Amino acid sequence: MHKPGPIGVFDSGYGGLTVMKELVKELPQYDYIYLGDNARAPYGTRSFDTVYHYTLECVQHLFDMGCRLVVLACNTASAKALRSIQQNDLPRIDADRRVLGVIRPTTEIVGEYTKSRQVGVMGTAGTIASESYPIEIEKFFPDITVYQQACPMWVPLVENNEWNDQGADYFVRKYIGQLLSRSPEIDTIVLGCTHYPLLINKIKRFVPEGMTILSQGSIVAHSLSDYLQRHPEMEAVCSKGGQRTFYTTDAPEGFDRQASIFFEAPVASKHLAL
């Protein structure tokens, strides 16, 4: 029997904290370790190979800290690295460990929300280029047409604390307009980046009334809860002490200030040297 360890939560930077916040809310009894690779962020514009190697390195660090289950709370990492890690690396590292992503839980349920069967996906350039959302949605709902929109300025706006400024309105309106110009029948938009929940109030201002906006945090939390119920062998190796530990590959002082905004609670992180 493996010794229980915390649930690992990985992101290239801060965005994954919007997911971890919901994980803690839904499953507060578990221990969590968050690792943000801020020193090498953003991942959204990097190549598939670079994202894969960076993600695998960070996952290995979480494994070394005792995590037997890791959630990639990053759409770019989920799109560009998850499959390779699951298929090629886990059998070599430890077949009893698990790495989960954020794209599949979202695509599994999107069909429950759209009536027109036309869905928009907004994400980083890397996530959009991967075609992960159209591919996964078609597996579950082949009748849905997916329209994608890269939003290259949204993450910088959030990371620089400018999401509430009037200047952000231009870029929020611009990308939503570009997406909706492709089809007036889109009735559901997936926010395919974990940074985007901080822009949710502005996004709602520039979409038609009645539009459904799907944010990933609560979706991933519900999915993980279900996963642990269906896999008691994994649930048994997740330690339960309600501890939250934070690591960043960059300076902890700067990370803590920004992270507390995403996590909506004080954060005291430690530095991890890669």
Rank of each mutant, 00 (worst) to 15 (best):
T124A: 06
V102Y: 00
N161D: 15
G101W: 02
L191Q: 06
H222S: 14
V102Q: 00
Q148K: 11
F141N: 13
C238V: 07
E235W: 06
T194L: 13
G123E: 02
Y196D: 06
A221N: 08
H222C: 12
R173M: 13
E112W: 05
P184A: 12
P232M: 07
R182H: 12
P152K: 07
A125Y: 07
L198E: 04
V146A: 07
L100C: 09
N161S: 14
G101S: 09
W154K: 08
R117N: 15
E209T: 14
Q118W: 00
V155W: 01
V121M: 09
T194K: 10
I128P: 06
S215A: 15
Q229W: 01
R97W: 06
L224G: 04
I219A: 09
D226E: 15
F206Y: 15
A168F: 00
S116P: 01
T114Y: 04
A129V: 03
Q118M: 09
K115A: 09
L180N: 01
L100M: 07
I103D: 02
L199N: 01
E138W: 06
R173S: 13
S116Q: 12
N161P: 00
S225E: 13
G167W: 02
E233W: 00
G123V: 03
Y196E: 12
P156E: 13
M211D: 08
R117H: 15
C238T: 06
V155G: 03
P105G: 10
S223R: 08
Q216V: 09
L214K: 01
T145S: 14
I137M: 12
T114I: 04
I219F: 12
L100P: 01
Q216G: 06
S130T: 07
M153K: 14
Y227Q: 08
V158P: 02
M234C: 04
P232C: 05
F141I: 08
V110P: 04
R104M: 04
G241N: 15
E112F: 12
Y170C: 02
V158S: 05
V207A: 05
V146C: 08
E185L: 14
N160S: 15
M153R: 14
E138M: 09
I186L: 05
T127D: 04
V146W: 05
I109H: 03
H195E: 13
I213Y: 10
L157W: 01
Y113G: 07
S239K: 04
G123C: 07
K115D: 06
I213Q: 10
V207H: 04
V102A: 01
G167V: 05
E136P: 02
L228Q: 06
S225C: 11
I200R: 12
T124Q: 08
H195D: 11
P134N: 11
L198P: 03
C238S: 13
R173Q: 15
H195N: 13
K202G: 03
H231G: 05
Y147I: 13
Q166C: 00
I135W: 02
V207W: 02
L179K: 07
